[in-house]
Design a protein around this nucleic acid. Structure first.
Length: 422
RNA sequence: GUGACUGUAGCUCAGCUGGUUAGAGCAUCGGCCUGUGGCGCCGAGGGUCGCGGGUUCGAACCCCGUCAGUCACCCCA
């Protein structure tokens, strides 16, 4: 706290053991994506500002006030990635992926948004997401939702609900927009200031409002489901059927709209009741027009983004704090000579055993080093002191059962240790 | 961008209505202990009381400003 150099607002440093939980989640994500046939894409952390303005939408909150934008030395306007979909599409276009048939890609990494931080909201946060491009079929929507579902199920987080909706396409959305306008316009003056503005620019967004004065009007607003064109209705029905067939529990919620401009047809959110005000941990939908609007061919696509910070928070509040397993060996030398003798064994163990090998160079007493072993959560201690040195032995102490076992010290030690492994 | 609350040791916090050299627990280091641990006992180091200004004989405490943190709003992962 006295340090003047602190991490920037809304960012965080992650240490053990917390970093271990990140690694575990990330490993699970990579494995899951692989099982669904998705390959990882990595893109630059910053992009040309124009990409996000065009991709995310000029009137979206992200572009209007949340971007980390700067001029580089060549006087180009650059922006730290506030979301992944636009960069993924850009990269796929740049390298001609869309001429090579359907693409299944996933990403895992940081995003940046200039916002006031609060519980579950950061200026640098991390997202896992997937993009399934090249299929307009509802099976793709179901696949994407199913992958997210599997990840959430794997952690058995209670109180997570999946809400889905359809926000139509170019055919039916204008009609619905008009119906919404007709619904709200007579009561315009009783709406919140924000909603009045939204009514002008994008009436769909009024449904997003949580303002108390808007609640009643929003609840009584017409549902998009009643305005869907035949094609969109058929698509939505097929998505629901596929989810049913997959045993995925969902709830149709006509108020799910999503903040980004590029969504079409299916939109969905996973929310956790265990979190604070920011309770959406995963959200996504279909964006059939985005690739075309970024100058590419007419490629339909569907995807989601999942916030890792919120997901980890949900996992933790589910209370699954399991005891750290004891693992590895604390190599203990007593005295300078013993240390020199022990070092080659430490090196050999690090190369061959697969265990974490801990060692202290501080010339501490046995007792102190055993305490270190506890702190390191080591399973065994390998003790080499004067007596052992003189007798050509080394003591392997099981730190759980507290039993000692003398082993020959020398070239047989590794072999003897190998027998310890199950 | 707006609002509320908070800011004392590495961490968690105490510090009564402003009154001498600012405390505790945990953690760290050392000792008890020439070699058998998570416990115990003893001791040590570590603080511009977020920062700046003001009121006062005197401020960690009161006032103003500022910065930071937390939560909430808007909105979102």
């Amino acid at each position: 706290m006295p340090s003047k150099l602190a991490a920037p607002r809304g960012t965080q440093d992650i240490f053990p053991p917390q970093s271990g939980r990140w690694q575990e989640l990330e490993a699970r994500i990579h494995a899951l994506a692989r099982r669904y046939g998705y390959g990882e894409i990595r893109t630059p952390v910053f992009e040309s500002t124009e990409l996000f303005v065009r991709g995310v939408g000029e009137t979206s909150d992200i572009v209007e006030k949340e971007m980390y934008t700067f001029q580089d030395k060549g006087d180009r306007s650059m922006t730290l990635r506030p979301e992944w979909t636009a960069p993924v599409v850009r990269a796929a276009l740049q390298h001609g992926l869309f001429t090579q048939g359907p693409q299944r890609l996933y990403y895992l990494g940081p995003i940046f948004r200039y916002e006031r931080p609060q519980a579950g909201r950061y200026r640098q946060s991390h997202q896992f997401g997937i993009e399934c491009a090249g299929y307009e079929q509802p099976e793709a929507d179901a696949e994407v939702i199913s992958l997210a579902w599997d990840l959430l199920q794997a952690y058995k987080i209670a109180g997570v609900t999946l809400k889905i909706n359809s926000i139509g396409d170019e055919t039916c959305r204008p009609k619905y927009r008009e119906a919404l306008r007709a619904h709200f316009l007579p009561h315009r003056d009783s709406l919140s200031a924000d909603s009045q503005r939204r009514l002008e620019r994008n009436p769909l967004r009024v449904l997003d409002s949580k303002a108390a004065e808007d609640r009643e009007l929003v609840a009584s607003a017409p549902a998009f489901e009643d305005f869907l064109c035949a094609e969109c209705r058929a698509h939505f029905d097929a998505v629901k059927r596929a989810l049913d067939a997959g045993g995925i529990a969902y709830e149709v919620d006509s108020q799910i709209v999503r903040g980004l401009d590029y969504y079409t047809r299916t939109v969905f959110e996973f929310r956790s009741g265990a979190l604070g005000a920011q309770n959406t941990i995963c959200a996504g939908g279909r964006y059939d027009g985005l690739v075309g609007s970024l100058g590419g061919p007419d490629v339909p696509a569907v995807g989601f983004a999942l916030g890792l910070e919120r997901f980890l928070w949900a996992i933790e509040s589910a209370g699954a704090s399991e005891e750290a397993r004891r693992e590895g060996v604390q190599a203990i030398a007593i005295g300078a000579q013993a240390l020199q003798e022990l070092l080659p064994l430490v090196a050999a163990l690090r190369h061959t055993s697969g265990w974490p090998i801990f060692i202290d160079y501080g010339d501490r007493k046995l007792l102190a080093q055993l305490k270190m072993a506890d702190r390191n959560n080591a399973r065994y201690a390998l003790i080499l002191g004067e007596q052992e040195l003189a007798e050509g032995r080394i003591v392997l102490r099981d730190l759980v059962t507290r039993t000692d076992r003398p082993l020959p010290f020398g070239k047989d030690t590794l072999e003897a240790l190998g027998e310890m492994r199950e």
